[in-house]
Design a protein around this nucleic acid. Structure first.
Length: 699
RNA sequence: GGCUAGGUAGCUCAGCUGGUUAGAGCGUGGCACUCAUAAUGCCGAGGUCGUGGGUUCGAGUCCCACCCUAGCCA
């Protein structure tokens, strides 16, 4: 029952850069947005949900060149793969387009012309590094050199990774192009700028940012800080042009100039929507208006889901661009944090993180992930952690043990004893389960609000509380005992009918998160599709089909397979392999006594460190080659924060030689060197007194 | 370095504008039960709320400093 009028939404997720497949972070964002979108549809609102590939820019141009294909072909290849991810995770986009499209070129050009007409575009010469071999200007990331501050070699053009100082690429000592190796030359070229510092922009943005409820408070704060900072950090104008060669959209009346990819990327939201309308798909979805009518309609709420890394573009440039191109501005930008894996930041280069494709390929249920993420997501800009043990516990306990279990406990009786027939809901009956319906409906408003506010974790908690209450009520009624007494048949029928009605309501509450399970449950229950929030109040008599399992449990083997890249399952293991002492606790407090036989199982030996080297891609590990007397061993030790390779080579230490070898991403670690200390810089490697030689047993 | 957010039971997280013995779920210990995908129910154990100061009759909740984590710095 919606008392308010139907709302109309235009919803997007951030456009993924088309130089590679989706990673788990993309999928998380899509799942978050998709759950919200499905919820809105269920309560009767109209949503048009689109996205597109972000196809332009130098990285794609260069990658295509490296692979010997055209940028178009590269992007098409990426796009061809998108569908299996989106279907696999049940992301219900209405349209998926590309920024490399006629619609986007048309819209970008039009918006640019309007900004120009508004007096917000100007041209200014810019001196930049230029690669004389590749014959192109170089973005900061394509220039390396020696840090002007700490003199570390091979630092990028914008900041030093060693001393963290920030500088201009022209400050680098002995700069070189990472593309050709050539020494870059300075060259001047005209660049086009969007005058964000214009008082009109600043005034507009102040108003836009401060509109109540528009942005999450943390996001509004951040944007306001950017907007109001004075001095050399003050808001500056935005360089929106790039010189040829560039894969992008040509700037009108400016030969050899292209729009910077970040100008046409957000316009891609509109381009995708336009294509969706022009292709007739919007009409199929019940939207009679044209693209222009819809986009400019005041009641249409325009909403962007994005990650916290691109707040700057979406809260300053994007609304300002739209405003001064005389268009409607976004109503909300909803920002989420990143996903970490076992507490470690995911990173493609390090190979950590979860491959969404692998997740699907090894047969893991997409709804497990949808549920797990929903259980952890909130409306804040907070990172959330994917923890394998937590994942399994959460999914198995909540979805199987609590939710599905309710149907599973009652359906057998209904089918075998009552020919599948349900009694209608009746709160006046004396059975313990009869009151539950009322309880479930009391929580409706709250659950609805949580969905609306993107407090998915809270919604899940609320729903699971209901499931707990039902399971407890079933235990009070003991249907298995009622079943033994023919005189109690009616009572049994009442209890079990209540269970199935409860299952229907829980299914509806969970449907935005578990669309496929909800659909299968709907078949079982004979519910009309698509599912609607109003079916919470159905509660009549009905007939169900014989029950089949709707969801499987998470199998630990699958989780192992998911992480079987040699990545340590939890990052403490990697460091623990080097620090034998339990941190912070005295041994007598932490460990039980052992017998001498136990100690005899431990093969400790003096080892000579023949070689020590940093491990590329692991900032905590050193790779050690050890002489342990009769053999050489490779050991990865998490001691890089305390030792440099030079300090270690040649010295003696103690190694646990019969530790089960551990496969790591970087290779096999065949032992553990002993060290003490809490970690960080305070790690102290053990050494024998002088006279000891490699291979001697420690006893 | 500047800024932002966070640091609460083994794990994942709630704790509104400061107010009686700090909560939940999972895990764990015990008991019960067997309808249910080793599912469910009942009872219990577990926290000096990052550290150190301060304000207050009273602080996880406000202020200051510091430590740690993550991110942003166009």
């Amino acid at each position: 029952m919606t008392s308010s009028a139907t709302r109309h939404f235009f919803v997007t997720t951030a456009l993924p850069y088309a130089n590679g497949p989706f990673h788990i972070g993309h999928i998380m964002e899509y799942i978050q947005a998709d759950i919200w979108v499905r919820f809105q549809r269920m309560v009767g609102n109209k949503v048009h949900f689109v996205c597109a590939d972000d196809a332009h820019g130098a990285p794609i141009m260069l990658k295509a060149e490296a692979e010997g294909v055209t940028p178009e072909a590269l992007v098409a290849g990426i796009a061809a793969d998108r569908g299996k991810y989106l279907e696999g995770f049940q992301i219900s986009f209405d349209y998926w387009h590309s920024t490399h499209s006629p619609e986007n070129a048309e819209l970008s050009t039009a918006i640019y012309r309007e900004l120009k007409a508004a007096g917000l575009i100007y041209v200014k010469p810019v001196e930049q590094f230029y690669d004389p071999v590749k014959q192109m200007f170089l973005a900061d990331r394509y220039i390396k050199g020696e840090c002007p501050n700490c003199h570390s070699k091979d630092q990028y053009g914008d900041a030093c990774e060693v001393c963290s100082s920030v500088y201009a690429p022209t400050d680098l000592i002995d700069p070189y192009s990472t593309l050709s190796g050539a020494v870059p030359v300075r060259k001047t070229s005209d660049h086009y700028f969007f005058k964000l510092s214009d008082p009109r922009c600043v005034e507009f943005l102040n108003g836009w940012l401060n509109a109540p409820g528009r942005l999450q408070p943390a996001v509004a704060n951040k944007a306001r800080e950017w907007l109001t900072t004075q001095g050399d950090q003050a808001l500056s104008d935005w360089d929106i042009s790039r010189d040829a060669p560039y894969f992008g959209i040509p700037i009108p009346d400016a030969p050899g100039k292209y729009f910077y990819v970040w100008l046409d990327a957000p316009i891609g939201y509109l381009a995708s929507l336009k294509k969706y309308f022009d292709s007739g798909k919007a009409r199929e979805n019940g939207e009679p208006r044209t693209f222009d009518q819809f986009l400019s309609a005041p009641e249409v709420e325009q909403i962007h889901f994005i990650g916290k890394d691109i707040i700057y573009f979406h809260t300053l440039f994007w609304p300002a661009m739209l405003k001064f191109a005389s268009r409607k501005v976004p109503d909300h930008v909803y920002v989420h944090g990143f996903i970490t894996v076992s507490g470690a930041k995911m990173s493609k280069s390090r190979g950590t993180g979860i491959s969404p494709l692998r997740y699907l390929e090894i047969g893991m249920n997409s709804e497990w992930l949808r549920y797990y993420l929903a259980a952890k997501l909130n409306a804040n800009v907070e990172d959330i952690d994917f923890n394998p043990d937590d994942f399994m516990a959460r999914v198995n306990s909540d979805l199987i043990g609590k939710y599905v279990n309710i149907a599973s406990r009652a359906a057998g009786f209904i089918t075998k004893r009552f020919e599948g027939k349900l009694l209608p809901v009746d709160g006046t009956r004396s059975v313990a389960t009869a009151k539950w319906n009322e309880l479930a409906l009391q929580r409706e408003t709250q659950i609805r609000e949580y969905y609306e506010e993107r407090e998915l974790g809270k919604a899940v908690r609320e729903i699971m509380e209901l499931a707990d209450a039902m399971n407890a009520a079933i235990d009070r009624e003991k249907p298995w005992e009622l079943a033994k007494d023919p005189a109690q048949a009616t009572r049994l029928h009442e209890v079990c009918s209540d269970c199935i009605h409860a299952f229907r309501q829980l299914t509806l509450y969970l449907a935005p998160i578990l669309p496929r399970t909800a659909e299968r449950a709907a078949v079982l229950l004979g519910l009309e599709m698509p599912l609607r929030w109003s079916q919470l109040r159905d509660g009549g008599a009905g007939t169900i089909k014989p029950y089949e399992h709707l969801l499987q449990r998470v199998d630990p083997k699958q989780l192992e397979a998911l992480f079987d890249f040699g990545v340590p399952k939890d990052k403490t293991e990697a460091t623990a392999s080097a620090t034998a002492a339990p941190t912070g606790k005295s041994p007598e407090a932490g460990l039980a006594e052992i017998a001498i036989e136990d100690f005899a199982k431990i093969d400790l030996r003096v080892a000579k460190i023949l070689q020590a080297e940093a491990v590329e891609g692991a900032d905590k590990l050193l790779k050690l080659t050890l002489d342990i007397g009769d053999a050489q061993r490779t050991v990865f030790a998490g001691i890089r924060s305390a030792y440099t390779p030079e300090q270690l080579a040649g010295r003696l230490t103690v190694v646990l030689a019969n530790l089960k070898p551990r496969k790591m991403r970087f290779g096999l670690s065949e032992g553990m060197v002993l060290a003490a200390g809490p970690g960080g810089k305070e790690i102290f490697l053990l050494s024998p007194d002088s006279g000891a030689t490699a291979g001697m047993k420690v006893k």
